[in-house]
């Protein structure tokens, strides 16, 4: 692969961002002169504008009052603003993150364990095969209303929705990984005296790790999607709730703030997974010294 200079790459990235943001900010102003060039979608009524979004962000996050004055950190205005609005941007982000985290963790752990057990047992996988295929062909998001009905509009229903979208993804990858273990490794371990449990711990789990990690980046986005959909359907707090509220008010900038926050959250979570993977699978990256 040809290597490009980092500086040049960053330059292009900055340029692309600048173009997109400029079109977003000023594109619609051109409509008066060049109506054929500018589609209706650029109407700030639908997609707001970067400047409006930023302004609204400062207000919703209690950094600025509605009158446009910056809230002081020390005179208690910031804290007062936070308590006035139970679902302020900070609280909403925290609650969505918390539910995503629990949905993700429970989904990964249960999917991993189930995948490992079924992947190592021909008998169990034969028994469960048709059920798994059937359940997997349901679009999991379609279950969200039922889950909210069953678990209420609290945090639990969001965690369950999130869990159900994550668990299958991780399960299938772990299952495939456990099936495709090189017999040479298990034989080598067995001949060195490893018990079944030692083989699982020292051979099966490490060699399945690459497969598991391949599912974790999509899993984290899925976990976030599960929580947001749950919040759309019924919630008192959370970023999904903020989006629904802004939509009801016809306030595009409010929705956009939530979207941007979700994007940042997704990027940060993926980066964490990526760092973890780079560490745990470091043996994959060291290439031949020859």
């Amino acid at each position: 692969m040809r290597r490009y200079s980092t500086l040049g790459t960053i330059g292009w990235q900055v340029l692309i961002c600048a173009i997109v943001l400029s079109v977003w900010q000023w594109g619609y102003d051109l409509r008066a002169r060049l109506p054929w060039l500018v589609p209706d979608l650029l109407d700030p009524y639908f997609i707001s504008k970067p400047s409006m979004i930023f302004d609204n962000f400062l207000i919703q996050s209690c950094l600025k009052s509605k009158l446009g004055v910056f809230n002081g950190w020390f005179n208690g205005e910031f804290a007062k603003c936070l308590t006035r609005n139970e679902n302020n941007l900070w609280a909403a982000t925290a609650i969505t993150l918390k539910n995503t985290f629990f949905g993700f963790i429970t989904g990964v752990v249960s999917g991993f364990v189930a995948g490992l057990i079924l992947g190592r047992s021909d008998r169990l996988s034969a028994i469960f095969q048709p059920f798994i295929t059937a359940v997997n062909s349901i679009p999991r998001i379609a279950l969200a209303p039922i889950i909210v009905l069953a678990f209420g509009i609290g945090d639990m229903s969001k965690i369950v929705t999130s869990w159900i979208v994550v668990v299958f993804l991780v399960f299938f990858n772990t299952f495939e990984g456990a099936r495709s273990i090189d017999e040479g490794f298990t034989n080598a371990a067995r001949l060195l005296g490893a018990s079944e449990w030692q083989i699982t711990r020292t051979v099966v789990i490490p060699s399945t790790m690459a497969w598991v990690f391949a599912s974790l980046t999509p899993a984290i986005s899925f976990a976030l999607i599960g929580v947001i959909v749950g919040e759309f359907i019924g919630a008192e707090r959370g970023i999904g709730r903020l989006i629904i509220e802004s939509e009801a008010r016809g306030e595009a900038s409010g929705m956009m703030i939530a979207v941007v926050v979700l994007m940042l959250v997704g990027v940060v979570l993926s980066a964490i997974i990526w760092r973890l993977q780079a560490y745990l699978l470091r043996w994959q990256r060291q290439r031949s010294a020859e």
Binding site: F185, N187, A188, L191, T202, V203, P206, M209, W283, Q284
Partner: peptide, 16 residues
């Protein structure tokens, strides 16, 4: 016990 085996293809664990 007491029997060691060396494979045709080295089966070193790549993660160790």
């Amino acid at each position: 016990p007491n029997v060691g085996y060396v494979f045709q293809r080295d089966t070193l664990f790549p993660w160790r």
